[in-house]
Design a protein around this nucleic acid. Sequence first.
RNA 1: GCCGGGGUGGCGGAACUGGUAGACGCGCCGGACUCAAAAUCCGGUUUUCGAAAGGAAGUGGGGGUUCGAUUCCCCCUCCCGGCACCA
Length: 816
Amino acid sequence: MSAHYNPEIVELDAQQHWEDARSFEVGEDADKDKFYCLTMFPYPSGKLHMGHVRVFTINDVIARYHRLQGKHVLQPMGWDAFGMPAENAAIQRGIAPAKWTYSNIEDMRGQLKRLGYGYDWTREITTCKPEYYRWEQWLFTRMFEKGLVYRKNSIVNWDPVDQTVLANEQVIDGRGWRSDALVERREIPQWFMKITDYADELLDGLDDLPCWPDSVKAMQRNWIGRSEGVELSFDVVGEEESLTVYTTRPDTLMGVTYMAVAAEHPLAAKAAKTNADVAAFVRECQQTDAQEATLETMEKKGMPLGISAIHPLSGEEVPLWVANFILMSYGTGAVMAVPGHDARDWEFAKQHGLPIKQVIAPADGSTIDIDDAAYLEKGVLVNSGDYDGLDFDAAFNAIADFFEATGRGSRKVNYRLRDWGVSRQRYWGTPIPIIYCDDCGAVAVPEDQLPVILPEDVEITGVGSPLRDMPEFYAVPCPKCGKDARRETDTFDTFVESSWYFARYACPDNDAVMLDDRAAYWAPVDQYTGGIEHAILHLLYARFFQRVMRDEGLTDVSEPFTNLLTQGMVLKDGAKMSKAKGNTVDPQGLIEKYGADTVRLFIMFAAPPEQSLEWSDDGVQGSYRFLKRFWRAVIEHVARGPAGDVDASALNDAQKDLRRKTHQTIAKIGDDIGRRRSFNTAIAAAMELLNAIIRFDDDSDAGRSVKRESLEAVVVMLSPMVPHICHALWRELGHESALIDQRWPEVDKNALQQDLVEMVVQVNGKLRARISVAVDAAQNAIEAQALADENVQRFIDKKEVRKVIVVPGRLVNIVV
RNA sequence: GCCGGGGUGGCGGAACUGGUAGACGCGCCGGACUCAAAAUCCGGUUUUCGAAAGGAAGUGGGGGUUCGAUUCCCCCUCCCGGCACCA
């Protein structure tokens, strides 16, 4: 083998070996300990970017590490192939979305292979193919039969010029990205999945996920937003129907001084008919996009409707307002306002001169001024008639009981989580398997007529969906009565495909059922790796779908992902890489220049996986330099002739030191990768060991055998990160069998033993000396040695020693 | 606005359970090799005072708990992710 490191030769050779040996194709073997190791599959945008390289490398390292631990590892790959970019490419370049997508997949598959990832390509999934999406159409029809899906009106971003529904991303500062027209909120009928039926289970299930990051669990908990409160109704003067509101603070009920409804609320619409100002205000509210962040950050505005509600306890009239920050989609679209004890209500009241009433006082008897700020804590009721003096719990129950007894309200558990709207008015997605019949209503497409195939040969104009202009697609007979009917032309949200693909990798070729026995073998995913940006939506939808599949009898598993790793972004010059900023780094060029191993090594070394990673071309150089040193170290060692096994009983001190370092490093790297997932420190430890090996200049038989043991350990331990060079060096070290089939080295505990240990001596917490003590030294002996130190004495300076703290093996702190 | 995360040398980062701040790498400085350069190798590198020994300061800012805080608590600030139609 060449004395010179040539990454291209080394890498293509290793990849050829893995392909010939089918190293990564796995079947189901009940006797083996399975490990299902998965990344969030990519959208086939055309070219791999550094974010992809990062997440796939992290996962490949974990997969290869577990394989070295003797696990039966499955690492599949596929394509999240439906979505907007394909339509945009079609508009801009006139290529049909399907053609563009399939060509991108070809390119990206080639790039993935060049990076040496250990995928079982026989299980590849492409979501835009009918053999994949037919099963989510089928599951949807099952959900339809069970009442788990329904149709209702909901708000979309409407571009009045392009006559098109816009994605939030296509709304820039409230205007359509292509037309520049002010976006309007518009209500259209859409399909929803009842994820709220599973709200409690999705919430409680988080407790069964000890290996998920706490931050992700916290975000999901807050997103589900379970709260316990009371739903109660206020009569409205001159209206038959009362106004229902939900509150988690019924104890503040006597502090209600006004009420507010959303612009889309029926009462606002009714007032608008007779009040031009209200009509104008409601119109103004609708001249904005539908994003929550927009609603929450815009200036809080409101207008009195000229209608009053009757306070259910006091009988007083309170004014009814319409406000731009009330969400029709959350709760009942109406709120009772308690400006004394709610920050937003307080601000709104101040702004519009509405009264502020204190009805809660601090429990400790202190006084507050409700005119300065709302008092948000729970306390004791005041100015609340019969309820005065009660604390939160007592007041909650007394008021809830009162309303339940009078039939005007009830205790209610409420969720922030809303049902999942899955309809998209787009072409490039899975057709929703529904047919509308004038007589039979919405009818699910029968199983024997699935899949509903999306026509791929279409022209995309950017105005509406082409499916709406294709009678050959939408004109169908009603499956129930046979009358002329119309097929649904909306498609699914692409989150539907990504909510179950992980299960389908087990049996991608089964055309009879959605999931089979092989899915039972592989589920759940043992390790799931993906971007933190998916912490809520994708991961929550996938957890929901897993339960829907379970309740359909397709699996016994409730939680799809056992361990979750959320990796950070790749930055350049402190900003996310983007074409617009011109700060992208193309992985392809770097692979050609340095090879895949250098890129993989740098990306794993530059930052811990959860943190954002700052790209550095100089850092890549450094990784390349390290691999060259690594190569040379092994080649030079081998060139000096054979080395036998280590005889641990016949080593000198320097040989013992290198052996100790070797076995300490084996323990550290195993812990860093296996438990801590701290790949950057694992690589640092390997670098340190290699530095020690190179410095170790001992050509005796014993010296060479110790060195060989160390080098072999480094080769095996670095192989998850840089598999190609390690494959070659393992051969170089004289092994017949391939590295991919080896096991992780074992720690020799005897090699770890040492006689002396360095301890730090502090005086009043400040470092003053280092002492070398016997490992088994008694505490008072250590104290005596520390006190005897010259510099320590200087700082004690004849002051009285009040206390000595000894932390065995670490430090002595002398307090004077 | 709300929820979650982050801020440590010139730079990326390390310090895992409250116990040596700056491992490892980059960059830079000096040296070796070379006609020269690249590559490679050796040494140095938080700031500051000092010839040195050895001090002082220091982990976004302010306060607190502790013998001891990058680590725990409170307040503030800046940056990043998510907010339901980007994926």
